[in-house]
Amino acid sequence: MSAGTTTPTRTPSGAATAAASRPAPAADGRLPLRSHLRHIGALARRNALQIKADPESMFDAVLMPVIFVLLFVFVFGGAMFGQGNQDQYVNYLVPGLMAMMGMNIAMAVGTGVNDDFKKGVMDRFRSMPIARSSVLVAKIVVEIGRMLVATTILLVMGFVMGLTLHGSVLQLLAAVGLSMVFGASLMWIFILLGLTMKTAQAVQGVAMLVLMPLQFGSSIFAPTTSMPGWLQSFTDVNPLSNLADAARHLINDEGAVAQPVLITLAWAVGITAVTAPLAVRKFRNKT
């Protein structure tokens, strides 16, 4: 902070004369965009350093994709595509798991936020001249990084297990990007949950309740064609199905891409538009 901003010369209107250089907050105290980005950067650095100080917090992002690929390929692969044809299932499964990674990382955000926001340092952030949403946005930035790590490991593991990329690298990146966008929107839901629920355990409990039907009532693990009609109408709108289909069609370069991509994006935008403002308001009013 500059010396000028610490010396508000009182005028009848109570406005501060910012005698000093950067950054000049507007008379109503609003900050320029560059300040917001700087704050988000500083807070994201904090979240990243926390991970560095506690490497075990990366276990889920690192181990989950490895275990899931191994488990599902060997458990379901043979049953679905016949003995010895597990590699065909890999091409079906891995794009689906990209959708699931986002979901699981997002769930961890909820419990993390619940823990973090009980600490005294949040009082300091909330009494500082920064937008209170910066704290939440920084968290999401770092969690997207974690999701990227998990997805990379998932893909490496997939290639080891026989994944073949039929589409272009660009299509692969599009699939990764789409799952990031959707994952980020899910984080707002879980941040809202984390801010609302009293304990991290409660967050976990509610999250599991939501997660299970969404994950298994989808096309992530198995084609939906053999499911009963009522379930199919659910899987058709389930964003995880759409994300899984979109990623699958991009990576395997087959089937419709536009529709599942658009439905996934619509969900992402809708979820963010509703839950992000609620989460920010919840954080602002939290006492």
């Binding site: 901003t5 610490t6 005294g120 949040m122 009082d123």
Partner: peptide, 16 residues
């Protein structure tokens, strides 16, 4: 927002 520019807070529970 303006007020937060002028204050420093040290709570009962160290906020670091």
């Amino acid at each position: 927002r303006q007020l937060r520019r002028t204050i420093g807070l040290t709570g009962q529970y160290a906020s670091v």
